[in-house]
Design a protein around this nucleic acid. Structure first.
Lengths: 154, 154
DNA sequence: TCTTGCTTCTCTAGTCGCTAGAGATTGTAG
DNA sequence: CTACAATCTCTAGCGACTAGAGAAGCAAGA
C-alpha cells in the first residue's frame, strides 16, 4: 500500500495549463510570487498540481490589471481563509478607482485629439490643425490635462 | 551698429518656461528629440528662445499621450511646413484609435472588478468574492478579457 | 577674499512587467 | 546514435523617465 506518486508537471505544461508563458513563470518565481518548485535530477522544475491554481490566480489578477504587489497581498490573503477579507476588498476598490481615473483621463485625451483631427484642413503642414494645436497649448481646450504634469497614462 | 545679443536661457529657466523638468530636458537631448544646445564657457547648456517652442510642442504632445517616436515624426513635419499634413493626420488618428481601445479595455476591466466588489460579502476570506473570482476564472464573465493575452494596459 | 548655497554637470542605476537572446544541458523519439 | 525539442542560467532590452552620487561652476553676502 504505497501512497500514489504526486503528479508533477514540467514548466512547459504549466504554461499550457495556465496560459502564462514559460519565461514569465520563471520571472514570477524570481520575484517571489511563485514558490520555488522541486527539481528533477536533471535540474528541471517540477510543479505540483496545486501550483496551477496559484498561477491561474496570478494570471487572472494580471488580466484584470492588478499590479504585482497587489497580487502578492491578495495571494497572502487567499492563503489565510479565516482572516477578514476587508483588505482584499480595499485593494480591489483602490484598483477600481485607479481604472476609473485612467478612463477619465483617456476620455479627455481622446476628446482633445479628436478635435485636432476634425479641424484639420488636410492640406499643408502650414495650415495643419494637428501641428498647430501641438505647437500652441493655448489652442487646446483642456488645461485640465496639464494639471498633473505626470503623463504616465500609457 | 552691432547685432543684438540673442537671449540664451540656462536649463533651469527652460524648465520653468515649459514645465518640463531639468533631467527630462537632458533626456530629450540624449535621445535626439531636442538638438544639442550651445554651451557656456563653464559647460552649461544655453538655449535660444526658439527651443522653448520646440520643448512646449513636445510637452503638449506628451500630455496628449503621443509616444516619443510619433512626436519625433510630428516635429520633423512641423519643420517642413510646405509638405502635406496627411501623415500628421494619420499619426493623430492612430493615436486616437489607440486611446479608444484602451478605454474599451479599461471599461471591461472596471465592470469586472466592480462586480467582484459588489458581490463581496465583507466577511472572511473564505467567502470573499474578490478572492474567489480571482481564483477561478470560470466565475468571471469576461472571457473577452483573456483574448489578447497581453496585459499591458497599465 | 572667502564662504555659503544654489544650479548645473556627468554618470550610473532604478522603475514595472515582462521579453528576447545566447549558449549550455537534458530528455526523448526514431 | 542522432536529431530535435525542452529546459536551464544569465544578461540585456523595452519606454519614458526618475533618483542619486560626486564634482564643478557661479553669484551674493560678510
Amino acid at each position: 500500500m504505497t501512497t500514489p506518486a504526486p503528479v508533477l508537471l514540467p514548466i512547459g505544461q504549466m504554461a499550457d495549463a495556465t496560459g502564462v508563458k514559460v519565461p514569465t513563470i520563471r520571472y514570477y518565481e524570481q520575484i517571489g510570487l511563485l514558490p520555488t518548485p522541486p527539481r528533477s535530477q536533471g535540474n528541471r522544475r517540477l510543479y505540483p498540481e496545486s501550483a496551477i491554481q496559484r498561477l491561474r490566480f496570478i494570471r487572472h489578477a494580471r488580466e484584470l490589471g492588478f499590479e504585482i504587489d497587489a497580487i502578492r497581498q491578495l495571494l497572502d490573503m487567499a492563503d489565510q481563509p479565516d482572516q477578514s477579507c476587508a483588505d482584499a476588498d480595499s485593494i480591489a476598490r483602490h484598483h477600481l478607482a485607479d481604472i476609473q481615473s485612467k478612463i477619465a483621463r483617456l476620455n479627455a485625451l481622446g476628446d482633445e485629439v479628436r478635435r485636432m483631427i476634425v479641424d484639420c484642413s488636410q492640406s499643408s503642414v502650414r495650415q495643419c490643425r494637428v501641428i498647430q494645436v501641438l505647437a500652441d497649448h493655448g489652442q487646446c481646450l483642456g488645461d485640465h490635462l496639464a494639471e498633473p504634469i505626470k503623463i504616465n497614462e500609457k
